[in-house]
Write a protein that binds this DNA or RNA. Structure first.
Lengths: 230, 230, 230, 230
DNA sequence: AATGAATGAGGATTCATTCAT
DNA sequence: CATGAATGAATCCTCATTCAT
């Protein structure tokens, strides 16, 4: 684990399993209660360590939180690399993107809830800086992919690239929200019906379909409406 | 003001202006700090009433919060009625929808932040029930509009209506987030460039364009790609 | 009670007896334990109020302490006015000065211990400013008295007035220390013998005698060595 | 270093330089913060040893403190021996006494601050016993000197010897306070003027002058008023 | 009805001390 | 012996809620 502003040296020295327990516990409590309602003494107890130790690892409740966020963004970054934005048509890339997003969200649901917490605005400025970096890599990935698609003639030429990139990001965010937040999950169920819940394939296809149409992806690229109609 | 589960009779009896002050103040504080970090004593002081009165109007901090949400949903409902889902083509309706969404968000930014708070999952179950109603009206509106558009031949027939409705909702939500949350606002600025900030028209057009393409709206309906390319 | 930086308005509103109880209790605990070891929760309990109330009267432990010091300096100021620096010879004034000092110290021993705490250097700068004022009045009183005594010919002319004033102050401080601090009290007993303990008259006389000699007060002024020899 | 109640055998075994570092560091922290606010873990870190070692040298925070005081008193004792109470007139002895006091205070300012802390009364009884010894040697020195001076006819015969001894001690203490405590230092500057700050000679002379006058030292002994007037 | 003083449980953080390595 | 991680009691302070006036 690389050095960080948010945890102290002592934390680096303890067993990785213990680090994991602390992170997992803390993430779960923060995700459930929110930053303010979360009780750091309770986190320590649940993680099986003393508060004294907690404070020997992290300078404050806020630092603990930031360390978690940082960790989550690291994981996100790693996950994102599986998108292979250089391989295949834009349709292929988008498909991989949504699959990766779903996998990450289902693997780290609490982490995603934390992310939601951050975007809720009540978090400190410091959190912004942290996620800025991750946002930047996503942004540049989206724009690169789109630019290449335009060059290859996969996408209509008159497209507003910036807007399109934002759109892709929005779709990813909304998908994550639906899998993360109780609220958005219920909403999705209400829209798609209870029986559709869990049908990740439908979500992937619909998203890819919708975005491809929006981008004016030519049928030749293998993303015709017919492939996705239900 | 109609009777509610969330405020007491005494609240109905006070001057509407006072009610307004209390609501506005509370919304602003909750929006800024979040539910847990908000201080009800401070809200009372800022609103110019005693905490004693506060508690004679609302049974608890939570009830105050719920009353605010309820009020916000009322306003939202009223705003939504301006969409006139029965008039004009689907393109017209969508355009009005986004304009209304923008207007509402800019008029009640703090209320929208509250809404964000709710969706963050850390709120009590009771909030869910509240917003359920509003969600339902939106959902049925979207579906009705889409069904009519299919019947009129404005939209391709093979469309997944439920998914399409969810897509429209997502677009509205993301737009609201961009105008509400510091985080999503910054993100939007990063994608579109600083100078684009405030260009509501671009947002409306891009959204309508993207969704219409996704829906396969025929050019005849007046929403061809050409109208929106930039 | 006049307004102060150190307590809140709420404190002014409560019954003076309650104010007194709080002050007396707090002074006693601070005097016994020192600032850091004193427990504000315990003070509240001993004073018969809740910590909540304590914090509605004073913003912090430090403010409580400063309020006490401020109060003590007020009392000191009032006591000092009994010295009547304008009446009688310098010998008379000095005699009154030591009597007043003894009376004040015996009436407010804990307050004097607090004063000791302040001079111990570990207190915040703010305390300094507070006592500065009191120190200034003493200083100017001493210098005025001395100047007048020189003009009247009661005191030798070649005297270093500033140093003499400091000497008088030192004598007062040491006397207070002896009556306040367990340490200096024991020391005094060791020097003067146990049986001398409580003989305030001896202290007054010896101090006046020593200082008058130092000042070179002429016999005519009624302070000859003979009057004080034992 | 002789055995002591306050440190353990292990402490005697380590290098004297290390002992010194520990003592110096601890004294400085205690002097700055006071006993309660001082952090023994921080002292250990600053001294470059582990807390584990700290506790293998000293049984408790209190013992560490007491060991420091003990050490300081040893140094004081050594310094005092330079007064040579047997050589010269009482005036000579007093002059040496004040010079030694000033030198000691300026050499070990933090130690003097510790001494101040002790006299503040909040220290444990054990500290008293410690300093008792030092106090006793001072007391007996003062009394011996005075007795000899009376025998030699340097001092008026009707003097209250005990009181005179106490007076001398008081003068020494006040001088030390003025050089040690921020509070008393400021006070002195206010009395004597800023430019006088640092004029040790004036302090020595004024003290000797004042005390000699109080003792009724005959001019013949070389301590007439003329010598000291300014 | 209105007021706001009073309450005290709760929670973040510190630090003297222990003990396994 | 030395180390420094671990412990958890202790403490300052906040704030939702009550209730006497």
């Amino acid at each position: 684990m690389a050095s960080s502003r948010f945890y102290k040296e002592t934390f680096e020295k303890i067993a990785p399993e213990k680090q994991d327990i602390i992170f997992t516990t803390a993430i779960s409590v923060f995700a459930e209660r929110g930053f303010d309602a979360a009780n750091i003494n309770e986190i320590a107890k649940l993680a099986g360590i003393s508060i004294g130790s907690m404070y020997s690892y992290f300078d404050s409740k806020e630092d603990l939180f930031l360390a978690l966020v940082e960790k989550g963004l690291e994981l996100l970054d790693r996950a994102m690399s599986e998108c292979c934005p250089d391989q295949g048509t834009i349709t292929d890339v988008l498909e991989r993107l949504f699959r990766v997003a779903i996998r990450y969200t289902e693997k780290h649901p609490d982490m995603c809830r934390l992310y939601l917490l951050i975007t809720t605005d009540n978090m400190k400025v410091q959190t912004e800086r942290l996620s800025d970096q991750a946002e930047m890599s996503f942004r540049s990935m989206y724009k690169t992919v789109l630019k290449r698609a335009v060059e290859r003639g996969e996408v209509r030429e008159d497209i507003d690239l910036d807007m399109a990139a934002l759109y892709i990001d929005n779709a990813v965010v909304m998908l994550q929200l639906a899998l993360t937040s109780r609220y958005y999950h219920l909403k999705m169920k209400h829209y798609l019906g209870d029986e559709a819940d869990g049908d990740r394939e439908r979500l992937v296809r619909a998203n890819v379909d919708f975005i491809c149409r929006g981008l004016g992806v030519t049928l030749a690229s293998g993303c015709g409406a017919d492939d996705f109609k239900e």
